[in-house]
Amino acid sequence: METAELAELTVFASVAKHLSFRQAATERGTSASAVSHSIRSLESRVGVRLFHRTTRSVSMTEAGEALYAQLQPALAGMQHALDGLNSFRASPFGTIRINVPNSLAPYILGDAMDLLAKHPGLKLEVVSTDSLVDIVEEGFDAGIRLGERLSQDMIAVRIKPKFRFSVVGSPGYFAQHPAPLTPHDLHHHACIRYAFPSGKILNWAFAKDGEMMEVEVTGPLTADSQELMANAAARGVGLAYIWEDRAAAYLHGGHLQRCLEDWCTLEESLFLYFPSRKHQSAGLRAIIDAMKA
């Protein structure tokens, strides 16, 4: 197979994965017009249309779906072979793609990013989302999640730091509503709820002196962003149950105050997970070593 043909097939696989010429171009570090040219060239050479294109969407034809299904194992095998070579390098090298929770991304990747200055050949691509994704299907080298959200077939490494939730409200809110003394008191308060991408609402969990409980709260606002929740709480909308680090700047500035501190003792561990240690690149190994607890 000619080099040009192989290049066209890898471009085709990227467009098929994303169903987007623009996203394929971003992934490959080229322009959308170059991607479009490669696809036209491939379609002309094989004499079959592989994609339906409109100004709004891209979808695969039946022929395109058949080609992609046959190409995936071969391209994956080639990538594994190349990744295997990375293990022989003295210095971490290559691009490592990691999927991380959007609410925690700013606080957990510092040690990994410090590696980039030390190893010019290493690149880190971070995609932040609170949705659970299949890291293998989406082409990630690793993901970061709380322990209870890990798939059983993944290898998981506990990483630092641990996180703790805090219940916070604005001084103005507390001026009008006495601070809750126990989690049961939350039923009498306006609470800002967190919704997972699935639509499930997060219950507020507490522990004190061996007693553990969860509280299903109600309130005027439900959001899928902890930053939005912190901002709303600072505006007096209600109480928020958010990561301690997320609230830190608001607490330091006096815009938020804590309550139920003696009940907010549960610490959450995070894990970096990946599908296999086989052909693990030196770059991923270095990131694991830098982040593990």
Rank of each mutant, 00 (worst) to 15 (best):
M78K: 13
Q79Y: 13
Q79D: 13
Q79P: 02
H80C: 07
L82Y: 12
L82T: 08
D83T: 01
D83N: 15
G84N: 12
L85N: 08
L85E: 14
F88G: 10
A90Q: 14
A90V: 13
S91L: 11
P92H: 05
F93M: 10
G94V: 06
G94Q: 08
I96Y: 06
R97P: 03
R97V: 04
R97Q: 11
R97G: 06
I98N: 09
N99R: 13
P101I: 08
P101R: 13
P101S: 09
N102M: 13
N102E: 15
L104K: 09
A105V: 14
P106C: 09
P106V: 04
Y107F: 15
Y107R: 09
I108E: 10
G110P: 04
G110N: 11
D111V: 04
D111P: 05
A112D: 03
M113R: 09
M113S: 08
L115Q: 07
L115K: 08
L115H: 05
L116E: 02
H119L: 06
G121D: 15
L122N: 06
K123R: 15
L124T: 01
L124V: 01
E125D: 09
V126L: 05
T129Q: 01
T129N: 03
D130W: 10
S131D: 10
S131N: 11
D134C: 02
I135F: 02
V136S: 11
E138V: 08
E138F: 13
G139L: 07
D141F: 00
D141G: 03
G143A: 11
G143L: 10
R145P: 01
R145K: 13
G147E: 02
E148R: 15
E148P: 02
S151P: 07
Q152E: 15
Q152G: 09
D153W: 04
M154N: 00
I155F: 00
A156K: 00
R158V: 04
I159C: 08
I159Q: 06
K160N: 14
K160A: 15
K162L: 05
K162T: 15
F163C: 07
R164E: 04
R164H: 01
S166H: 00
S166M: 05
S166I: 15
V168L: 03
G169K: 00
S170N: 05
S170L: 06
S170M: 06
P171K: 01
P171Y: 03
P171W: 02
P171S: 03
F174S: 00
F174N: 00
F174K: 01
A175H: 00
A175E: 01
Q176V: 07
Q176S: 15
H177G: 05
H177I: 09
P178W: 05
A179F: 03
A179T: 02
P180Q: 02
L181E: 15
T182H: 09
T182N: 08
D185Q: 05
L186I: 01
H187R: 14
